[in-house]
Amino acid sequence: MAAGPAERVIMTAEEMGRSLSRIAHEVLERNRGAQDVVLMGIRTRGVPLAHRLAERIRRFEGVAVPVGALDISLYRDDIARRGPVPIGSTDVPVDLDGKRVVLVDDVLFTGRSIRAALDALMDLGRPTSVQLAVLVDRGHRELPVRADYVGKNVPTAQDEEVQVRLQETDGRDEVVILRRGE
């Protein structure tokens, strides 16, 4: 068992796989195929998730959708309060003008990251539409943001932490809730 205080698994590797498969189907359904769809993962963990969705879309539909990475450090609204964080690269695989961009993130919480991601995206081009896919929606929104595709809705307390662990970044697939403090 993993170390750490009061850790509860809320999504296993199998459940994660099924959620991603469902989201991939929903993306295809909503966009009537994969035409003009671009998946943009938000760094850090949105990027491997975007690749997994693209892999499923390729399996289901036989189409390779472009996958990019969006770093939102320069667009955060709390740089002055929390200090600078190291910046990752932003990779834009195709011209985003006229595309249907699906933003992919691991956890939807206050909505501030998504606000920053939207601003970052608008500086890169003019997509026809932007949709949002998240693996976990944990509530507590501070901005009017809603996801189009949700792997799992998880009610949480404000002081809990939702951690998405992925094979690519953490060596295994699972989502856990950590209670801070005790």
Binding site: L74, I79, A80, R81, R82, G83, P84, I87
Partner: peptide, 8 residues
Amino acid sequence: LYLLCGPR
């Protein structure tokens, strides 16, 4: 400039 713009 970015690295120096932290909390003060």
